[in-house]
Nucleic acid binder design. Sequence first.
DNA 1: AACTGTGAAGTTTTTCACAGCC
DNA 2: GGCTGTGAAAAACTTCACAGTT
Lengths: 210, 210
Amino acid sequence: MANQLKPPPPDIVIGRLPLYLRALDLLAQEHKEVTSSYELGERLGISSAQIRKDLSHFGDFGKQGTGYQIDFLIGQLQHILKLNRHWPVVVIGAGHVGLALVNYKGFQDNGFDIVGIFDRDPEKIGQEINGVKVMPDSELVTTIQEYKVKLAMIATPAAAAQQSADIIIEAGVRAILSYAPITLVVPPEVHVQYIDPVSKLQHMTYYLEE
Amino acid sequence: MANQLKPPPPDIVIGRLPLYLRALDLLAQEHKEVTSSYELGERLGISSAQIRKDLSHFGDFGKQGTGYQIDFLIGQLQHILKLNRHWPVVVIGAGHVGLALVNYKGFQDNGFDIVGIFDRDPEKIGQEINGVKVMPDSELVTTIQEYKVKLAMIATPAAAAQQSADIIIEAGVRAILSYAPITLVVPPEVHVQYIDPVSKLQHMTYYLEE
DNA sequence: AACTGTGAAGTTTTTCACAGCC
DNA sequence: GGCTGTGAAAAACTTCACAGTT
């Protein structure tokens, strides 16, 4: 008999779930109780078929003729993405980018708790931003272990990013959001996402007329 | 006779060109003169075949047996992406995110000149960050027209983002990098890219163990 | 020997279109 | 009538593999 293991949902599908969640949160704020793949699709600029197929990887969340119960679907997506808990996060690098991250309200609002920001420059140690004290790199490993931190944001110069990544992975970090414009080399069990506004601007200049 | 129009290069390919450019810039800084699709691929975690195919949409830039002349390829990519000039950019919203953008060195280093940052809050007007004065929204349209600004970064709260987009598009902006966590509705000739660190973290928590 | 450029093959992703249910 | 879930079809994207050039 053939092996009937379902393939895991594609990563590209996982990446869209946060968008669905955002749109659903907005609908809930508008006191709507039910929505459809058509309404969601229109709000997100995505086809309704794609939304239905994406969700079908995880279960039958809708009702034919009716659509999706918004509260219920939010709960399901939060469960799938493991968002029904708080996640401690560390920020590496206390330059302009690192400080902006600590100041950004969106993390706290969505259950990502910044438990520390770290820098190798002694000048920066001790200052407090948004209730978080800048600590020396020497405390990085103990902090990660103490809070069982799995998530980190790297906001160091490019030259320091790989070294930082090596240290925090060794200490237990398993997912990195990097603002440094270099490709990090990490073991396969570690996930990395990049944010590079310059690359996104350069992508769009292609389409601009001179 | 059949119509022999080549299809335009896929958008996903355009999106990788800035990465290639970054890797090439690094190689040039290391005083290397020649590279190969294999070396580039290894540095970027991309297959060599994909790099060759991507580049082949725009011309024959390499030499068989040798590889790619780094300076030459940098020049070609800059030309393709229209980076052999400076681009004026406006920032909408002078909160933490907007201010961090004005402070970020990467834009200036890559030819993106922030010519103004705007806010509707009178309290914020007049302060100067990194040589740029915060101006009231009322000066937005005239500034865009004066500098012929085609690129904008939106760093307002979600609730204000669509309205800001409408205004700047009307004034002439054709590409928007939005930090607001909502999908903007824009006419087809306007390009939009989003940066949402929360969504990227949520994408990765899927893969973490509880 | 080393490496490009590229058709062809393979894989992934999206869209279509409709049976089935409310 | 309105909407989901889903096989099947279509489209998009990536990799293979190799002829051709230096």
